[in-house]
Design a protein around this nucleic acid. Structure first.
Length: 490
RNA sequence: GAGCCGUUAGCUCAGCAGGCAGAGCAUCUGACUUUUAAUCAGAGGGUCACAGGUUCGAUUCCUGUACGGCUCACCA
C-alpha cells in the first residue's frame, strides 16, 4: 500500500516546496459560485472577448495540463463534468504562476476568472486567481486510455469514478431508479420502514446465511437473507402497505448476477393478492423505465426490451410446455426426474415432484425469457410462504418475473393461515436436519404474529441491483455496486 | 467448487523458438502567452505477480501459490 515510486517521490517533494512557499496545500474551505455544468448552460452564448460580467469561481481536479511557457491550459473536472481553464502569467501574477506550474494532474484547485471562448471555440475560464485545495501525491492513470483494469477499477472505485465518467452516470441512474420507485410507492400510501439486519432466526428465502455474534447477549445472530417476515409482522400490526429497500446477505457464490450483499425492495400490501401485485409490478417498473429513459423500450446488451404493460404471463407449467417441449403434468415423477438428470443436472434423489418441476423450469426456461415475462403458479414445495391455489393444493399463488434471462422479482399471495404456515415451517426444519443448508428454522414469533391474524396480503421482492443492470445496460452486477465484494489484496 | 485465459514502468500495452527489458501517454530538464492526445529537444523510471524447478543462463519453459476475468455449477 505504501509503495513509493519516483512519481510519488516527486510529488511529495513538490508538496514540501509548496509548504515552504507558505502555502497550505490542504486548506479548509473554498466556495465555488458555479459548477462546470452551470457554466456550460449559463455561458453558452459567450464569445471570444472576455467580459467581467462572466465571472465565475469553480473548484475541481486537474485532469490534463498543457503548459506553454508563460501560459497554460488545463482541464478542470468537478462533479458535473469538465471545463477548460487558461492560466497566464499576466493574468495571475508571476509568483502564483510559478506555483501553479508546480501543480500536478490530480491536484484539486479552485480558480476565479471570466468565461470566454478560445479561437477554437472551446468554452474556457480565463483565470486571474488560483488556489490549491488539495495536493495529490499519487499519479492518476493516463488521460487517453484511462483506467481499464477491472481489478483496479473495482478495488479502487474512487480512481474508476475519477477517470470514467460513464461509471458515475450508472450510479447516478441507480439512485434515480430507487428514488422513482420510492416516490411511486409513497404516492400509493406505502410506508417505508426499517427492520433488523441482525436476526436471531433467518428466513423469508432459501439461502445460506452469514453468521455473526453478539458479545453482550452471548448469542449467534444471522445477517438477514430477506426481510420478508418482519415486514409481514408489520402488516399484522396494522400497517397496510409497507416497503423497505433491504440490504440482504447470502453466503453463496459470486458471479455476473450475484454479489454476497445486494439490495432488494420488498413490499407488502394488505387485502391484495398476487394478481394485484402483478399489475403493481408492471406499472412500477414500466414507469421507472419511462422516468429514466423517456420510453418503455430500452436496449440491454444489444437486445431491445419492451417494458410496456401488460407483460407476457405464463404459468410455470405452460412455460415448460412451451420452452422444454414436454408436458410435466403427464409425466410421472420418475420421468420428470430422468429428464432433469439427462439434462446434466445433479439431483439428490429425494426431491419432491414440485422441486423437480421448478428445476425443469430453471434448466429449460429461465435463460430463454428475454422480454419481461411473468411466470406464475409455483409448486408448493419451493414456496413455503405462499398461499395455495384454491383449486389445486400442489401449487401456490406465486409469480416471478424475468427479463434478459434473469430473475428480477418474486411475489405471492402471502400465506396467512398460521396452521398451514407451521406445517410448512416443520417441513423446512426437517430439511434442515437432513442437511439442506438452504432450509430454515421455525420462526415461532412469526407464527405467533400470524396467529393474531394477518389480513390477506400480496407481497413482492425486486432485485434492485439486477433491475439497475437492465436499465443501465451493464453486463455485470459488479458494475452497479460501488464496492463489489472482492478477495482482499494479498 | 471446476475449466479456460490473464498478471511486464504510474496508466494502456508490445516483446522474449531461453542470451543486457520495449513503446505511447504520464514524469523530470529546457524552449514556447489561444492549446486541447499541444509541439520541439533531451533525461530518468522495472523484484517482468509470488515461490520453487529445469538450464551455463529464466521475464520467456515446467510446477505450485495468490489475485483477477470469462464460462459452467449453486443461488436472487
Amino acid at each position: 500500500m505504501d509503495e513509493s515510486n519516483e512519481l510519488m517521490r516527486q510529488r511529495k517533494e513538490k508538496l514540501s516546496e509548496i509548504r515552504k512557499a507558505g502555502i497550505n496545500p490542504y486548506p479548509h474551505k473554498f466556495t465555488p459560485t458555479h459548477t462546470t455544468a452551470v457554466i456550460r448552460k449559463d455561458f453558452d452564448k459567450v464569445d471570444e472577448t472576455p467580459d467581467e460580467t462572466h465571472r465565475v469561481t469553480v473548484a475541481g481536479r486537474i485532469m490534463t495540463k498543457r503548459d506553454h511557457g508563460k501560459s497554460s491550459f488545463a482541464n478542470l473536472q468537478d462533479s458535473k463534468g469538465q471545463i477548460q481553464i487558461y492560466v497566464r502569467r499576466d493574468g495571475v501574477g508571476a509568483e502564483p504562476y510559478l506555483i501553479y506550474r508546480r501543480f500536478d494532474i490530480g491536484d484539486i484547485i479552485g480558480v476565479s476568472g471570466v468565461v470566454f471562448r478560445t479561437r477554437t471555440g472551446e468554452l474556457t475560464i480565463l483565470v486571474d486567481e488560483v488556489e490549491l485545495l488539495s495536493k495529490s501525491i499519487r499519479p492518476l492513470p493516463e488521460k487517453w486510455h484511462g483506467l481499464q483494469d477491472k481489478q483496479t477499477r473495482y478495488r479502487q472505485r474512487y480512481a474508476d469514478l475519477i477517470m470514467n465518467p460513464d461509471v458515475k452516470e450508472v450510479f447516478i441512474k441507480r439512485t434515480q431508479i430507487v428514488r422513482a420507485i420510492r416516490e411511486m410507492l409513497d404516492a400509493q400510501n406505502f410506508i417505508e420502514v426499517e427492520t433488523p439486519v441482525l436476526q436471531p432466526i433467518y428466513g423469508g428465502a432459501s439461502a445460506r446465511p452469514f453468521t455473526t455474534y453478539h458479545n453482550t447477549l452471548d448469542q449467534q445472530f444471522y445477517l438477514r437473507i430477506a426481510n420478508e417476515l418482519y415486514l409481514k409482522r408489520l402488516i399484522v400490526g396494522g400497517f397496510d402497505r409497507v416497503y423497505e429497500f433491504s440490504r440482504d446477505f447470502r453466503n453463496e457464490g459470486m458471479d455476473r448476477d450475484h454479489n454476497p450483499e445486494f439490495t432488494m425492495l420488498e413490499l407488502y400490501q394488505a387485502y391484495a393478492d398476487y394478481l394485484d401485485i402483478m399489475e403493481l409490478t408492471e406499472n412500477l417498473i414500466a414507469k421507472t423505465v419511462e422516468k429514466l429513459h423517456g420510453t418503455t423500450q430500452i436496449n440491454y446488451q444489444e437486445k431491445t426490451i419492451d417494458f410496456t404493460p401488460p407483460w407476457q404471463r405464463m404459468t410455470m407449467i405452460e412455460s415448460i410446455q412451451k420452452h422444454a417441449d414436454i408436458d410435466p403434468e403427464s409425466f410421472s415423477k420418475h420421468e420428470l426426474y430422468t429428464t432433469v438428470v439427462d439434462a446434466g443436472i445433479k439431483l439428490e434423489g429425494d426431491e419432491s415432484r414440485g422441486e423437480i418441476i421448478a428445476e425443469l423450469f430453471d434448466v429449460f426456461v429461465e435463460s430463454k425469457l428475454d422480454q419481461p415475462t411473468i411466470i406464475y403458479d409455483y409448486p408448493i414445495e419451493v414456496s413455503p410462504f405462499a398461499k395455495k391455489k384454491p383449486d389445486n393444493p400442489d401449487f401456490v399463488e406465486r409469480f416471478e418475473f424475468f427479463m434478459c434471462g434473469m430473475e428480477v422479482g418474486n411475489a405471492f399471495s402471502e400465506l396467512n393461515d398460521p396452521i398451514d404456515q407451521r406445517r410448512r415451517f416443520m417441513e423446512q426444519a426437517s430439511k434442515l436436519e437432513k442437511g439442506d443448508e438452504e432450509a430454515f428454522m421455525v420462526d415461532e414469533d412469526y407464527l405467533r404474529a400470524l396467529e393474531y391474524g394477518m389480513p390477506p396480503t400480496g407481497g413482492l421482492g425486486i432485485g434492485i441491483d439486477r433491475l439497475t443492470m437492465l436499465l443501465t445496460d451493464q453486463y455485470s452486477i459488479r458494475d452497479v455496486i460501488l464496492f463489489p465484494q472482492m478477495r482482499p489484496e494479498s
